[in-house]
């Protein structure tokens, strides 16, 4: 099977539409007959990263490659970058302002959760340039 490729723009100014890309990917994987556990891992990891893009980085693009044995999700933004990745990966570390917390996010659990649900997580980041997350989930 040729890998299936899906691409999305994530609007950084619109909190309401955040998660639309993750929903579309989840629906596609379900239709293709991937196991429920795989679908859920992809959905949660991608949703966390998509929300991060909106609340920390003014949006960006997502490219998803679906292969029979793995799903690779690349999320690229032109946000502020992450100054200290080790710190950002710690549970409970968050720079989210109070208005984000009142929306139900900003507990500092997203990146550790992405790590937990993925088989491989790579983070490339440069201050003032942006951040690219590459999430791989094996089936």
């Amino acid at each position: 099977m040729e890998p299936i490729k899906l691409s999305f723009n994530v609007d950084g100014e619109n909190f309401v539409s955040a998660g639309e890309a993750s929903t579309a990917v989840k629906t596609t994987l379900k239709k293709m007959g991937f196991p429920g556990d795989t679908v859920r891992r992809v959905a949660i990891a991608m949703y966390e990263a998509e929300i991060n893009m909106v609340i920390h980085a003014h949006g960006g693009t997502v490219d998803v490659e679906i292969c029979p044995d793995k799903i690779v999700i690349v999320l690229a933004d032109k946000g502020p970058g992450i100054p200290n990745i080790d710190l950002a990966m710690q549970e409970g570390y968050s720079t989210a302002p109070d208005d984000v917390r009142s929306l139900g996010f900003g507990a500092g659990m997203g990146l550790p959760n992405i790590k937990k649900y993925s088989d491989d997580l790579e983070i490339e980041t440069e201050l003032g340039v942006g951040t690219t997350l590459t999430i791989t989930i094996n089936c």
Binding site: V16, G19, S22, K26, Y47, L103
Partner: peptide, 10 residues
């Protein structure tokens, strides 16, 4: 907010 439903969906 709507993200409650998205979270539940995921």
């Amino acid at each position: 907010n709507l993200q409650t439903v998205r979270t539940a969906m995921m």
